[in-house]
């Protein structure tokens, strides 16, 4: 629909929309996160749901204790190699559409514990992360900003065509392989379809 015509109609009191916008409007205002915390970032996540920061203003206050009812996985804290298979399994058990927010330096890259032998250097090695939040830990405002960014992303997802989100694409994978405990590291150490080691470019 033409933008000018829509503006003209709305000035006359007639609101026009498309199915796509209606669908995305409903989806982006009811993002239910999965209720689990991994480390200190979880405390900030809890604070953001409470009265002072009030995540409920964005429709995301309903933390679900079961992956079957959740849309959003907030990876809030250090992912140890012991925990990584469980995180991936929980993600796999979430129904589509599903999104991932990597909250804090640890979830992004291992953070201050990157040198630890038991620390996963970023959850994006196994899961498709939608929004990264920097910080150690990020303030609740940063988490709210991330959820608003995610809402923006959801609002822009088309229903058809090449750019449609994975949950509307029958060929896009719904489950990602779960790493196994190996002798020295997780096997495989990363999902090659999602993540490749960054290459240093020296000039």
């Amino acid at each position: 629909m033409d933008e000018g015509l829509r503006n003209e109609l709305s000035r006359q009191g007639v609101f026009a929309t498309s199915m796509e916008e209606l669908y995305n409007w409903g989806r982006r205002n009811s993002v239910w996160p999965l209720q689990f915390g991994l480390a200190c970032c979880a405390i900030e996540m809890i604070a953001s749901t409470m009265a002072r920061y009030d995540l409920a203003r964005f429709g995301s206050e309903i933390f679900r204790p079961s992956p079957r009812q959740a849309d959003l996985m907030i990876v809030s804290g250090t992912v140890t190699k012991k925990m990584a298979p469980q995180i991936v399994r929980l993600y796999n058990q979430m129904p589509e559409p599903k999104y991932v927010i990597a909250m804090g330096a640890c979830a992004i890259s291992g953070g201050p514990f990157k040198q630890g032998y038991n620390v996963l250097k970023g959850i994006d090695r196994y899961l498709p992360v939608d929004v990264h939040i920097p910080g150690c830990p990020p303030r609740p405002e940063a988490l709210i900003q991330a959820i608003m960014t995610l809402q923006q992303k959801i609002a822009e997802q088309p229903l058809n065509g090449e750019l449609r989100p994975p949950h509307l694409d029958p060929d896009a994978p719904s489950e990602f392989p779960i790493p196994q405990y190996g002798e020295h590291d997780l096997v495989p150490p990363s999902n090659p379809n999602l993540w490749s080691p960054p290459r240093a470019v020296r000039s």
Binding site: R68, N92, E175
Partner: peptide, 15 residues
Amino acid sequence: YSPNKPGNIKNATYE
């Protein structure tokens, strides 16, 4: 619009 995508892990008993 949205295709059904069941899977072994998704349909597993434990949550």
